[in-house]
Design a protein around this nucleic acid. Structure first.
Length: 110
DNA sequence: TGCATGACCTGAG
DNA sequence: GCTCAGGCCATGC
């Protein structure tokens, strides 16, 4: 398989619990490619490639900023999705990001 | 085969 | 504490 990176990113994102958010760097690090944090976002952008639904809206940058909101249809679709999960978005940023932050490492290991 | 891009992160000024 | 610049990895043309 080979391009596991793509698959792994989707897999990890799908594991993000409801009402929780993660970061590209955390996912990239969990996969093993720390420097590929940028690619994580890219993989999510191509989430349409994956048959399963991928909650990309739960993935934000290190600052908890909705950097990928532009990739969603509409103007603040991503924000609405997060708010639907009980999160509070302020100025395109998740309130108490640290509190809702979820690290894939909590799963233990691959 | 090679260059340019991308939903980022970290270090230095 | 904030802003600027560099790096890293994979994909696309």
């Amino acid at each position: 398989m080979e391009h596991d990176f793509f698959q792994q990113v989707h897999q990890v994102v799908r594991l993000i619990p409801y009402g929780r958010v993660s970061s590209y760097g955390a996912i990239a690090r969990y996969i093993g490619s720390v420097g590929a944090s940028r690619m994580v976002g890219w993989a999510l952008h191509k989430s349409g490639n994956n048959a399963e639904y991928t909650p990309a809206h739960r993935v934000l940058n290190r600052n908890g900023l909705l950097t990928g909101k532009a990739a969603f249809p509409g103007e603040n679709t991503m924000q609405q999705l997060l708010e639907s999960e009980g999160l509070t978005i302020v100025n395109n940023q998740v309130k108490d990001f640290e509190k809702y932050f979820w690290d894939p490492m909590e799963l233990g290991d691959l």
